[in-house]
Design a protein around this nucleic acid. Structure first.
Lengths: 236, 236
DNA sequence: CATTTTAATTGTACATGCACAATTAATCAA
DNA sequence: TTGATTAATTGTGCATGTACAATTAAAATG
């Protein structure tokens, strides 16, 4: 593990152990450098990481402060950490509705930047959070990159399998969001009524080398999904 | 303007001028350093910025590549740039429905981390994108931080006014999203029907020094709002 | 005592340098 | 020609150092 990640984790633990609240001040940069025995570069990178995670904010000339949201029960949409760390205290379960190889349609091919007809793994799941229906997910994995999937893997975390077992390095993703009315089929799976609201997020996942390997379409249950995003630069 | 931001802009222009496409390779780091005549640190920071903006991705041992989304007409939800740069080619207009000082309710106070009863500016607007209704916005600005607002300012970009005229430094924000059914009143403003889907985003904006100054509740028109997010670390 | 000015504090920008990891290209072996 | 090994390429991690900007606290001023 990299030193600056390690250090960031340690600082995070420091915040927990000292029970620091929103707005509380951390030791000054120099002191942190001494305390954690790293160089300025490393400490700066650690702090930058924590800032992107929404855990601290830095004010030049003033200090480094703890940042916390005052709401609980919200799912982090774009966390630097994954689904799991994200949802400590929550139980995620999945029911597999489909798992089979198929030939990529035009739409799938376009999103994955491949030729139509190439083989992809089709995975359809319902995901539950604390026993309640969270979302309906349909994913398409390029078989040339993800050669094998089985029911056991798909019932757990697919991405964990990809990272640990297949040693794939997941890089970045493009997400497209819109809100609409549920189709009869989606509504049935989500235990809702046709025409009810639904948030749909289409995501194209890429490896660190830029190759797209997964196109997924997720429709969230509007009553059970509340999201939080901690943004840093501007926004809308 | 900072050197690394300047350099990032120049590289962005370089990409445009050379008409580089998704996946195209940029000159190698050393070459970029020579070409733009900056140090390695600066160039690295510039590239990191561009990476966070979703404009490039870097692959160790391989090179630096252009990253582009293949969809148009989507609004960037969390861009490092603001609303304006974000929406080049689009026209944003606003109709002001309300603009008045008021006493903070419990909910507003809680979100802004202030005492109930403190004076806030209440702004209610409908915002249009290319002539179509985009969203209904209700914002509450702390008067102690934003002492003055008028109709002219509010019809344009409030944030631009805050940054340029008031010299406020906008830092980070916490956004809470959920999907629901429109109330009769919201539906009326959005020219939709009660019970139609709506994406609601509550945002608490902070200055760089960590002080919250604006709590806003925006409900988007589900037919006219499609969002794109370019994420980097993990996600869900 | 209120206000301005100055000084101390504290994080950020930028430069240089060394070591190293991941990828890719070149070489070699069979 | 294929597959393995080696070497070259290329970005990242980490350390050190100087200068500086924003904030805050202290001192000076009226």
């Amino acid at each position: 593990m990299l030193k600056y990640q390690q250090t960031a984790d340690e600082i995070e633990r420091y915040i927990e152990q000292h029970e620091l609240k929103q707005g509380d001040k951390l030791p000054i940069l120099e002191e942190l450098i001494r305390q954690f025995a790293v160089s300025k570069t490393t400490m700066t990178k650690s702090l930058e990481l924590l800032e992107r995670k929404g855990i601290i904010f830095q004010v030049r000339g003033s200090g480094i402060f703890v940042r916390k949201t005052n709401r609980t029960g919200y799912i982090r949409l774009f966390s630097t950490q994954g689904f799991k760390q994200n949802l400590v205290g929550h139980t995620i379960e999945s029911t597999v509705l489909a798992l089979e190889p198929m030939s990529a349609t035009n739409n799938i091919a376009k999103n994955l930047g491949i030729e139509a007809g190439e083989t992809v793994y089709y995975v359809k799941r319902i995901r539950y959070i604390d026993g309640k229906i969270l979302c309906l997910e349909e994913s398409y994995y390029r078989q040339s990159i993800v050669p094998y999937l089985n029911r056991e893997i798909v019932e757990q975390s697919i991405f964990e399998y990809l990272e640990t077992a297949l040693q794939l390095n997941i890089g970045f993703s493009d997400m497209y969001m819109h809100v609409g009315k549920l189709s009869a089929e989606s509504a049935r799976h989500l235990d809702l009524t046709e025409g009810d609201p639904g948030l749909t997020i289409e995501t194209v996942f890429h490896l660190t080398n830029g190759r797209p390997f997964d196109y997924s379409v997720i429709t969230y249950h509007y009553e059970h999904s509340h999201f939080v995003v901690q943004a840093n630069g501007l926004y809308l």
